[in-house]
Design a protein around this nucleic acid. Sequence first.
DNA 1: GGGTGACTTCTTGCATGCATCAAAGCTACG
DNA 2: CGTAGCTTTGATGCATGCAAGAAGTCACCC
Lengths: 235, 235
Amino acid sequence: MQEVTQLRKGAQASATQASLLDKLRKLVLSGEYPPGAPLPELFLAEEFEVSRTPVREALKQLENEGLVEIRPKVGTFVRIPTRREIVELFQLKESLEGLAAGLLAKRGPVPELEILKRNIEESERAERRADTAKYAELVHEFHWTIVQGSDNSKLVEHYGRLMNQLAYHRIVLETVERPARMRASIREHQSVLDALLEKDPVGAELAMRGHVNASSLAASRGADTGSVAGAEKEA
Amino acid sequence: MQEVTQLRKGAQASATQASLLDKLRKLVLSGEYPPGAPLPELFLAEEFEVSRTPVREALKQLENEGLVEIRPKVGTFVRIPTRREIVELFQLKESLEGLAAGLLAKRGPVPELEILKRNIEESERAERRADTAKYAELVHEFHWTIVQGSDNSKLVEHYGRLMNQLAYHRIVLETVERPARMRASIREHQSVLDALLEKDPVGAELAMRGHVNASSLAASRGADTGSVAGAEKEA
DNA sequence: GGGTGACTTCTTGCATGCATCAAAGCTACG
DNA sequence: CGTAGCTTTGATGCATGCAAGAAGTCACCC
């Protein structure tokens, strides 16, 4: 089957570049390559059946996104975010999501509000069923809906970068924070939505920030289970 | 220890690479290559006496920073930020600087406060002398001092990316907004500092946001210089 | 036995050749 | 005169060769 790919290599054209970056990002974010793991260009090149050049470019991009660290003449490694960085990112998250909520509130009646309403209803059902997986997915959707509803592409862009770096800790959030805070979290989502429906930007921003802050606190408290691999030691 | 690694991230990378990126960025930001101008790899390679490879990597980075646009198989061009993006970026700026001011206020007595105090004093002198160049520099310093004083490296990082994209409009701010708003702006700086001295995070954040917002309004009002090259055609 | 030095190996960094593709220009035809 | 299709051109995208540097290894000397 690979033969076909080989033969058609020319026809794939630009698909290579973007998809390679996506694949690599996914592998890093999913923990397939754990923090601290080396990512040799040649290895990846063979793995994905391309030459070192596109792999190299993808790695550079990932470095820029804060997901890997390139040490010149040494190698590329999956980055280990420090505890401090996590806290910093959560502070940013609070601010950006607050901004998003405020902007969305100013937009008046938009389809996003209906989506959020349904999201909360579904969340309540998931909570009653104790379906934490579904619940986690819904929470993720809720936050992204608000950010994208801000109608500010630059905000979405920065938020995306931020969330990529927090992707690891989303796992923590979903396994530690969620079960304990489900009820409270849903209530907070509801107050955000209430403020949005009343077109109250200040209220929406404050509600959102309060919610994110509460989640973050719970998350970083629970994050003391960290240190995935023993690669925490730095030279 | 990890801090050191962190800090070096931007600075390192085999002298050629980093300096090449800096040079290119500077040329784009300064307007040496105006918006819409093509940036052929080969041309730049000869210009800087390196091969296409490092040029290519630098351009990719600049694309990631939002300064250039790479159209596959066509070429790389200096990016023209749309009016809308400018507005979006100013919204982000307000939020991030507000966050920074709040965080700085929480930090208690730090050397930054003294720096800000002196900055305002100097600004007043510059204003009396009608020295707009010096004044512009001081304003820039004031804002950056607060952001860096937030002691949040991720915030600094995102803010830097943002300001790079606004670099063009800094010129507008400095030529249009400044002269008209000098007095008001200084007063606003003073109220930010007052809140900081009182360790009032909420007050500091609000003062900062009010100030940024006022500046942004003035700036976008004056920014009607848009549509530079004719490459604006949309599909 | 401990430490120092050169070496080996593995990795990246850069240069360059070739294939590919988008767009502009030209030709021929309706 | 206009337009469709072909050709030419110029740029990127990718592959690959080569050199340089950083770590770890091993032998050798004290």
